[in-house]
Every structure is written in structure tokens, then in C-alpha cells.
Write a protein that binds this DNA or RNA. Structure first.
Length: 293
DNA sequence: GGAATCATGTGAT
DNA sequence: ATCACATGATTCC
């Protein structure tokens, strides 16, 4: 299990920027009532305020103050908007198996057939690799039909992360191939590359219901968010918001399928498979890139 | 404003 | 069958 440390824009080679961001978010969430000042946070992380300032600008593209603002409940509520759900109304342009302008990242997606889903990955070869990303070490999984999995590992948690993913398709054959997966990471986390050239090929491996939920998520634009019940309505099962939550939680393509843009009706970030801190970080990162701060 | 409680669909065991 | 959920609405304090 090797770790490919390919350099990446906005990320220090060892990913330490995200570590800092992570700790700040956690400090803030712990005692959000206390609203610790920037100086205080810097002190508690044994850094100088200027150092912290620098890290944020490099990682998020915005000042600590703006970043902290982007991570509050208030901001999350604003993302939801009050305009009903024109966000999700736009039908998929081409349905399954075709390219379409979904998400701000230009992706084309197809889904596994029900038979393939029941086979739990049998006959499938999945190549994988670990790469640094703006949200910590990422595990990338690729099949012949396209990108199939994107997950995040804690420090030293590569094995657990791999198990989490591999258990979803236990009958597949897994081959490590970081050279193959590296270009995917660059493409996915570089907004400059999103709309250029060929769409990113993605394959959704899940039950029919799960795939419908994930397709719905793909329609949420950058810098916006919807509630679990919005999604339920969108897929034609308005009373299934809880089932939607479960399906969102099983999304194998973190970030690409923007499950971090699903919030509770109150605007609360109800949960995230890879940790609530990461969900906050993603929303903050996106806020910086849409000017929605 | 909480805390408790209920209806609810899906997927795993 | 039964159970655990990344929900949401209602009903009590």
C-alpha cells in the first residue's frame, strides 16, 4: 500500500493544510457558543495568527474570518434558499449512460444493472490508489467503466478506509494502481479543469433506489444545498426522506456526487459518512469558490 | 426551545 | 421478521 504524494494545487505535499483547517473547524464546533477569536484558536494550535492566516488563504482561497463565517449554521441555512426546489427540477438532460451537465464538475454517469448490483461486484476488477486531496488522504477506485469510488482516510486509517469501500462490492478483484488513479484526483479537485474537455466518466454501483438518490444529488449546483425531503420529493417518493438519508450515506463517490450538499430541514449538517468536520470543510471550500460568503 | 414520540422506506441480517 | 438509520412533524413540557 503505497502513498502517492503527487503535488497538488492548494495542498501542501503532506496535506498539513487540511490538518490545520480540520482542527480549527473542530475547535469551533466544540464550543460554538464561545466563539473563540482567531488569536485564541491560533494559540491553542500553537501557531501564530499570521501563520494561520497564511494556511487558510492557501487552502481555502479566503481569509480565516470569511472561512469561519462560511462554516456556521446560519450560512448553511442560506445555502438552502427559500425558493422551493427549482434546483432539482431540471431533468437529467440525457438520462443514464449519457454525458450531461450535472454538478459543476462535468460528469457522465451510468449505473450498474440490477443484476450486476446483486452480484456484489463479481466479475469486476477495481483498481485503486491513495492520493493527497484538499480534504485529507483520498482513496480512489476505478473500473473500466469509469470512476466508481472516492473515499477519505484518517491518518493511519488507510486499511479501515479500504475495507469500508471494498465491503460494498466484496466479490470484486482489487488491484493497487496509483499511476492509473492519480489523474482522477487532479481532475476532481481542480475547479479549473471541471468544465474543460471530456466529461469525467463515473459509474454508480448501487441499488435502484440509491442510484436515483445519487443522480438527484448530482443536480445540486455548487454553492447550493437541499434537504433530504427535497430529494425525496425529487425522486417521486415524498415520504421517503429518511430512506433518502440512508441512501445518501451510502454514496460511494464522495465529493463527486455532492452528498455534502444535503442538509436537514433546519439547515443542520445532520451527518456525514467521512465525518461532519469534512462536510463543513467541503461547504466552506465551495463557499470560497462561489463567493457565497 | 428542547425532549420524547411517531410514521416512514430501504437494505442488511 | 426485525432492526438501524445522515428525517421530519407533532406534541408535550
Amino acid at each position: 500500500m503505497t502513498i502517492n504524494a503527487a503535488p497538488y494545487k492548494d495542498v501542501t505535499p503532506d496535506g498539513s493544510d487540511y490538518d490545520t483547517v480540520c482542527q480549527v473547524i473542530e475547535l469551533l464546533s466544540d464550543d460554538y457558543r464561545a466563539q473563540p477569536s482567531l488569536d485564541e484558536i491560533a494559540h491553542r494550535l500553537h501557531q501564530s495568527p499570521t501563520q494561520l492566516q497564511k494556511t487558510f488563504t492557501r487552502w481555502a482561497g479566503l481569509s480565516p474570518k470569511a472561512f469561519l463565517q462560511a462554516v456556521t449554521l446560519d450560512h448553511a441555512k442560506r445555502l438552502l434558499g427559500h425558493e422551493g426546489l427549482p434546483l432539482l427540477e431540471t431533468a437529467l438532460e440525457l438520462g443514464l449512460s449519457g454525458p450531461g451537465r450535472l454538478h459543476d464538475l462535468f460528469v457522465s454517469h451510468e449505473a450498474m444493472s440490477p443484476g450486476e448490483w446483486k452480484a456484489r461486484g463479481a466479475g469486476l476488477t477495481i483498481r485503486y490508489g491513495y492520493h493527497p486531496s484538499p480534504f485529507g488522504l483520498a482513496l480512489v477506485m476505478v473500473t473500466e467503466r469509469g470512476l466508481a469510488g472516492l473515499a477519505f482516510a484518517e491518518h493511519g486509517g488507510e486499511e479501515a478506509c479500504f475495507r469500508d469501500m471494498a465491503d460494498r462490492w466484496p466479490n470484486a478483484i482489487y488491484v493497487e494502481d496509483a499511476a492509473l488513479t492519480a489523474p482522477y484526483i487532479d481532475r476532481v479537485f481542480d475547479p479549473e479543469a471541471w468544465t474543460q474537455g471530456q466529461p469525467l466518466r463515473v459509474v454508480l454501483i448501487g441499488s435502484d433506489f440509491q442510484v436515483r438518490v445519487w443522480e438527484s444529488l448530482l443536480k445540486i449546483p455548487m454553492g447550493k444545498a437541499v434537504t433530504y425531503s427535497d430529494i425525496a420529493r425529487d425522486i417521486g417518493q415524498p415520504s421517503a426522506s429518511r430512506a433518502v438519508g440512508a441512501a445518501v450515506g451510502r454514496n460511494p463517490l464522495s465529493f463527486v456526487v455532492p452528498c455534502h450538499r444535503a442538509l436537514g430541514k433546519s439547515g443542520a449538517l445532520t451527518g456525514y459518512h467521512w465525518g461532519l468536520t469534512r462536510k463543513r470543510a467541503m461547504l466552506g471550500w465551495e463557499a470560497a469558490r462561489t463567493g457565497a460568503v
